[in-house]
Design a protein around this nucleic acid. Sequence first.
DNA 1: GGTCATATGTTACTTTATAACAGATCGTGC
DNA 2: GCACGATCTGTTATAAAGTAACATATGACC
Lengths: 166, 166
Amino acid sequence: MTRSSDIEAEAFGPHDHQACRAQALAAVEAACAARRLRMTPARACVLEALLEAHRAMTAYELLDRLREAGLGSQPPVAYRALDFLVRNGFVHRIERLSAFVACTHGGSEHVAVFLICRGCRGVAEAVLPQLGAGLAASAAGQGFSVERMVIEGEGLCARCREAEAA
Amino acid sequence: MTRSSDIEAEAFGPHDHQACRAQALAAVEAACAARRLRMTPARACVLEALLEAHRAMTAYELLDRLREAGLGSQPPVAYRALDFLVRNGFVHRIERLSAFVACTHGGSEHVAVFLICRGCRGVAEAVLPQLGAGLAASAAGQGFSVERMVIEGEGLCARCREAEAA
DNA sequence: GGTCATATGTTACTTTATAACAGATCGTGC
DNA sequence: GCACGATCTGTTATAAAGTAACATATGACC
């Protein structure tokens, strides 16, 4: 387990991807069991594709996977699976990309910060509890109740910056 | 001039809208003069519609205004005007809504925080310099260079929360 | 007044997302 | 076991958001 109080860009560096995938999958399975959620074939297919890719994928890219797996070929199939996964905190929607990425922080509710590389489309997720809380409190002081927070930084990861310079 | 180190939800409360509009317009005009930018009829129409509405509007809503004004009826007309206004910091894109809102902080580059009311679609903008800088620095520590930062809180303003409770 | 950069007009198209409704399946209580 | 309500799936159709490409026009500057 890495520190989560600072931004980690592991997604952009070498890491034990097999392990991070297995761990995320186990966390989701445990959450489904605990909360009586149904991890159906279509939902599992979408989640696995995202864990495998470790980058943001669009609904239509995911629909291709579903089609290949014989699990449906129309947009609502993908959007419904994504809706379930996002609602339950297993996947995050990246607004900036109109795309989706698997959550690497275990599925409970949390405010996440995303670093999005415009080169490789990789996405690093960090959880900065004090940040979300501070913003929500500041907004509440004005009578505004924040229900959802989107924090996304777009730029270049170290590798892509080198590649672009070359 | 209000404090900009904390979130202001003026957009959701009573304020001198006429003055805030005029002030924003003057700032944009000054910036155009200083930077040799061309404020053409289509661009002005879009900006004025946004200043007038004081809420997020989609590209197609703005295109309707352009059409009414006889300034074009095809999507690229609206998108080009918006591209100019966003590039120059006069308008912000609200990712969460795929929509646009006039900037209330004078057009220079800045990291803005938006509070988006899902009831009335009103948008309050705040500038929290230390926040953007902190995030960028944290990311830079990981070799990631942030070029653009998106911070959006979605929820309910005081008025809409009351209306919903009723 | 030529010319280069910028802005406009238009056609056609891609990508992203949802509404609506019929049918299948699951879990629960009897 | 089976009726039931809730949830999930399959499908058609369409809405909404955004862009590529190319021709034409306008402005700024020498």
